[in-house]
């Protein structure tokens, strides 16, 4: 995938971006966003949070009909109940997240103390455990209710992932996530970039491949195929499986670093979760 990266870098140069010799996350992001600007010249930036529906007019019609009675609505309500209901010790989520519930915009963040990428689902479970509650599962179930509520309250915030300069491990985590994105895996030998960059807008069988830009703005999602809701890590598990790769652990280091990179690529895009997808 080095070549594809180089191509993107070249695109960036062609687009008039001063590419520094040392690629930085900021240069990566500009190249990434310019790649889509060039490929889908008529699609405005604000459209990308709508995922594949930003480029697929047929799917979009269906989606707009679904959004009239959003299938994730009850999850938002359940999540609000979870947010407000005291834990057994009398405390609530609010005791962990003073600025809550509209906090989706600060995740994923670099947790310097623990030297790791902290995601919203992981932070929620840390809060639960600190208060003597059982952690929630990371792909299906109640985690999607509480994060739906938080996502809904955070609508309109802008993606703004920060890679602090005072801890080189943060940049390292970003680089690992980036490498993950461009590495081919599985018997079918695909990287994430093969589908969502190289072939974005093309059809694999009758499925349109969506752009990676905006992939992180709207989780959790209600997916008709699932008949329920799922987290970002559940979705990525599916993408790994469909190329016959062994998926990694939800909220494990690989997917957290991946989320750090992928969300950074969407910096500047508006949060619009929870989402509904086919």
């Amino acid at each position: 995938m080095k070549h594809l990266l180089k191509k993107i870098a070249m695109l960036a140069v062609a687009g008039g971006i001063a590419a520094s010799a040392q690629a930085s996350p900021e240069a990566d992001r500009e190249a990434f966003q310019n790649f889509y600007k060039n490929r889908f010249a008529s699609v405005p930036m604000e459209e990308y949070p709508n995922g594949v529906y930003s480029i697929d007019p047929v799917g979009r019609e269906n989606w707009e009909a679904i959004e009239e009675f959003p299938p994730y609505e009850t999850f938002i309500d359940d999540g609000q109940e979870m947010w407000e209901k005291p834990f057994a010790n009398g405390k609530t989520y609010k005791d962990c997240f003073a600025d809550g519930p509209a906090i989706a915009g600060i995740y994923p963040l670099w947790d310097k103390k623990n030297g790791m990428v902290m995601t919203l689902p992981l932070a929620l479970n840390k809060c639960r455990e600190a208060n003597g509650e059982k952690p929630l599962k990371y792909k299906k179930g109640a985690i999607n209710a509480i994060t739906s509520y938080i996502a809904f309250a955070s609508r309109g915030q802008k993606t703004n992932v920060i890679i602090p300069k005072d801890d080189p491990r943060a940049l390292e985590a970003y680089e690992k996530g980036k490498k993950f994105y461009y590495t081919r895996r599985g018997q079918l030998n695909f990287s994430c970039a093969n589908c969502h960059l190289q072939n974005a807008g093309m059809k694999i069988r009758s499925e349109v491949l969506g752009p990676a830009l905006g992939h992180t703005t709207h989780f959790p999602i209600y997916r008709s195929k699932w008949g329920g809701m799922g987290t970002l890590h559940r979705r990525v598990t599916g993408c790994n499986k469909q190329v016959r790769a062994k998926p990694f652990k939800a909220q494990g280091e690989q997917y957290r670093n991946l989320e750090y990179f992928l969300t950074y690529m969407s910096n500047g895009l508006e949060l619009n979760g929870p989402g509904a997808r086919k």
């Binding site: 072939n199 093309m202 059809k203 694999i204 069988r205 009758s206 499925e207």
Partner: peptide, 8 residues
């Protein structure tokens, strides 16, 4: 002879 083909 094939149906529902992609265009990659």
């Amino acid at each position: 002879g094939g149906k529902a083909a992609g265009n990659i």
